[in-house]
Amino acid sequence: MAMQEPQSQAAPAGLTDSQWQAITELTCHEETRIPTDEANRPSDVYLSQARFDEEMKDIFTSLPMVATMSSYLPEPGMALAIECSGVPVLVTRDREGQARCFINACRHRGSKLVESDEPVKSARLSCPYHAWTYGMNGDLIGVPRQETFPSLKKCDLGLVALSTHESGGYIWVCLDPEKSPSMVEGSAQICADLEAFGLHKMHVYGRRRYDLKANWKLVVEPFLEPYHIQRLHANSIAKMFVDAPNVIRMLGPHQRQCSGKANFDPAILQGNIDNLHKYITHAYLVFPNTVVVTSPYYISVMVLLPTATDRTVVDYYMMVKSAPDNPKADDLYARSYQLIDEVFGGEDFRAAQLQQEGLSSGAIERVFFGGLEEMIGPFHEAVESFLTADPVPC
């Protein structure tokens, strides 16, 4: 009688089968294979205005990109104004709860309707200049002294709509009002992973904005590799991690990494795990502009909004299961929020700006990536795959 193959353990609650498969590939740290694949790129991919213009045209205004967290607009009748790579975007949730995105400009004279970058709650939005008023679904519903516009038809002058999609805990937008692109390859798996974490139901504990003097790719790169952790973070979080590669997957142009922390032992996967995030860190690049990093009690989300070749705005969101309802939880989240500012803001983002300053000298012709940085090469390849022209030879 033939022996049956042993069946793999089913994924625990809070994980997709794909996530669990990657986790089961983690080995003891001393048994982990050290990768030796190398790559390099010309420094001009970070400096060239022509390259930046191509990225804006072919990626950031042509593909769906994350605008904000679903949880940042938790109720119908809410709106948020954000600048997405130079485009003024108004994100709303209409009375039925549907997320919508529009150009944040009144159809009368072009004034922004909403100025604050914090969520507002209202049944309607009124232009501060002449009080033309719109519903949360974008319809023009009120024009003062409409008799002075005898040819005006309100049904023709709703807000300029942008293609909008909500999944994975995010509100996605395409910044070109003439385009309605499909989600890129791998997005369904990415969204399934993040919804398995419960990201779409989490609470925004805090949001912080960073205005960085660095190319957007330099801001992404630290979150694609473990090589820097024992060096850049030597005095902060290095002791929590080991100098070892991650288990990595390309999901279309998206990336998923999982790594065992310093206290990880494969034996823990055989028992009942109360909080897997104590032992394993997941890091995602949600292409093109969003980074997700898991922690035991919260999830960090960074939405990158390139505004110039050497400038990137980052919206950081700290996501928790629910709003703190006791002093212990409040203290834990407050300390975590401060630590993130010190580590991401004071170390990772600082490193990106230091790179930009050094590369801008023009003396460094190429940058190099070693085995522990093996996912940076595929990231650049993914970027380049969407460009219709390649002004910077690689």
Rank of each mutant, 00 (worst) to 15 (best):
A105S: 15
A123D: 14
K153F: 07
V143A: 04
C101I: 09
R109S: 10
A99S: 11
V66A: 08
L157R: 12
C106R: 07
P144I: 09
L157Y: 14
G142K: 14
C155M: 15
T133H: 08
S71H: 11
V114K: 02
D156N: 15
D94K: 10
G135D: 14
P88D: 04
C84Q: 11
A81P: 04
R100K: 13
A67V: 02
S111H: 10
D117F: 12
S70T: 15
I103P: 00
Y134P: 12
A81K: 07
P128W: 07
L90K: 02
K154C: 11
M136D: 00
P144G: 08
F149T: 15
K153Q: 12
P144A: 06
P88L: 06
R109D: 02
E147D: 15
V89W: 03
M69V: 07
A131T: 13
E96C: 08
A81L: 07
L162V: 00
R95Q: 11
F102C: 03
Q146R: 15
R124V: 11
I82N: 01
T133E: 06
V87Y: 01
L125S: 05
S85C: 14
S122E: 09
R107P: 04
P76W: 05
C84Y: 09
E115R: 14
A99I: 08
R124D: 07
E83F: 10
L90M: 08
E96L: 09
C127P: 01
M78D: 05
V160S: 02
L152W: 07
C84S: 09
D94I: 09
N104G: 02
F102P: 06
C101R: 01
R95N: 12
C155W: 13
R107I: 11
R93L: 01
G86F: 06
R100N: 11
R100E: 00
Q98F: 04
S70D: 13
N137S: 14
S116L: 09
Q98C: 07
D117T: 13
E83H: 07
G77H: 11
L152V: 03
N104H: 06
V120S: 03
T133R: 14
E118A: 12
V143H: 03
V120F: 05
A161N: 09
E147H: 13
C155K: 15
L159Q: 01
N104W: 03
Y129R: 05
S70W: 08
A67P: 05
L140K: 03
N104V: 00
S122V: 12
C84P: 04
T148H: 12
S111A: 15
R107H: 08
T68E: 02
C127K: 03
G86P: 02
L125W: 01
H130G: 06
G142N: 14
L159H: 02
A123H: 13
F102K: 04
V89L: 01
D117W: 07
P150V: 10
H130L: 03
A123C: 13
N104I: 01
G135F: 08
D94F: 08
T92L: 08
T133M: 12
M78S: 10
L73V: 04
A67H: 05
Y134V: 13
E147L: 14
C106H: 02
A105Q: 10
